[in-house]
Design a protein around this nucleic acid. Structure first.
Lengths: 247, 247
DNA sequence: CGCCTATTTGATCTGATTCAAACAATGTGG
DNA sequence: CCACATTGTTTGAATCAGATCAAATAGGCG
């Protein structure tokens, strides 16, 4: 465990700010949240299915995912998380975790006690509102994830996921030119897309052959955004990146 | 449009009550919400993707679903809604609808202005809390929907969906013995399960041959709950039916 | 080097799709 | 009351996208 610093909430503050244009005092209240910072290695669980956490977490650094395992031992990843995300915000209202959240890479995670967060919400209703929004955007992403799995083939699924990750990473200010970090293995990709590892490999080659993307060494390089978003039947609306007041 | 009566919020009140044990005054505040009641025929949209509603809706009577359509015109159903559900509660925090909500059968729907609902939430924080919970349970159901689509075959998917619907209907007091209304066509089932209509038909026959269920004339008859929940790899936890205070 | 994990390739198999047509139930207008 | 359109279900046959199995290759790293 490490002491917390302002830097730990920066990604979260930036995200909430993007959504709601925080006032200085709101920003400062967030920065003064009592946090417990933990460094985790790759492939560790942050919370497990069945847990009843008394705190929630903010992903400060690294990539994580929400997943669950079938009776037959097959894993399905239901969400990817990037810095600034609060992957188990739900635990604030639902006592028992119905899925696991685990790291994909080494991560820094900030834990906040539920009480402290509720307190903050009471004092700053707009922050509470921004957090609600955050949860609902998460749900919107789930809905798209369902569409991807239910009604499209491997190529479209994969292209769509890449589009989503690029847009989210860009919104978080974590892209560099056409590239963004996407440090996941092919078998993790398979678990997210509901495909076999072998088929993921082939689809990846297909997308590369079509000069749409290159995914190498944990970095996604989008060579042709137009082509990729078309291949993925991607429409950015569901990510709700615009502020509610705006169009 | 029809005038509202107490009966219209009964299903909703019962549900929130189940979750949070409402006080009399909370119950009465809910019953006095200004509602606009609308009767709809089957296969009509309640809200459409792209809409920016200023009100949210409570399903009073009938079955509805959340769905969206791919660029290629294929439909994916992402959620089924039963009386007492608030299928577009999200619009309270997200301005633009990212999917459609449509009726499956003739429905009675109660509309509430966002302002009125926010006002109610301010006056009765526990109601606000119950509504947040409602949204998050919705998200938990999405997560399971993803698992179903990503990591199981037609038989398991279908069995799981039936388990889910039966449990939700029972919790809403809408089952009768082993049976519950499930007034959907096979092609709607296909759109929900990410399968073709033909294969849904065959899988349905398979489940019937295994003496697990009979689905006929809009009524689902569960002949063997044990067998069905095993076939569906069903674990009820994600529906979060227990109250947060309880175990 | 040898170990481990991730990626790649080939061959085969299968669950599910697609296409096409028959069948049943229900409603509609003449 | 019948002809006929309509919508939903059922069946059969052909095809295909993706899974599975098995093995080779490649890249870190102690």
């Amino acid at each position: 465990m490490i002491l917390s610093s302002n830097a730990d909430t920066r990604a979260l503050v930036a995200k909430l700010d993007r959504v709601l244009a925080l006032a200085d005092e709101e920003r400062s209240a967030l920065a003064h949240l009592p946090l417990q910072i933990v460094a985790l290695r790759a492939d560790q669980d942050i919370v497990r299915e069945g847990d009843m956490p008394s705190r929630t977490c903010i992903l400060v650094e690294g990539h994580a995912c929400t997943y669950s395992t079938t009776g037959g031992g097959r894993r399905q990843i239901m969400a990817f998380h990037i810095p600034g995300d609060m992957p188990c915000l739900q635990s604030l209202h639902l006592r028992r975790m119905d899925s696991c959240v685990g790291t994909l890479t080494p991560c820094r995670v900030a834990f906040v006690q539920h009480d402290a967060l509720r307190e903050l919400g009471h004092r700053h209703p707009r922050i509470a509102q921004a957090l609600s929004r955050e949860m609902l955007v998460g749900a919107a992403i789930f809905r798209r994830w369902i569409m991807r799995l239910g009604r499209s083939n491997a190529r479209t699924r994969m292209a769509h996921l890449f589009c989503e990750m690029v847009v989210r990473m860009r919104a978080a200010g974590l892209t560099l030119d056409r590239t963004c970090p996407l440090p996941i293995t092919q078998s993790e990709l398979a678990d997210a897309l509901g495909l076999s590892g072998v088929h993921v490999n082939r689809t990846l080659q297909e997308l590369r052959a079509a000069r749409l993307i290159v995914l190498d060494d944990g970095v996604l390089d989008v060579r042709d955004w137009e082509g990729l978003s078309e291949a993925g039947d991607f429409d950015v609306g569901y990510l709700h990146l615009v502020r509610p007041e705006a169009a």
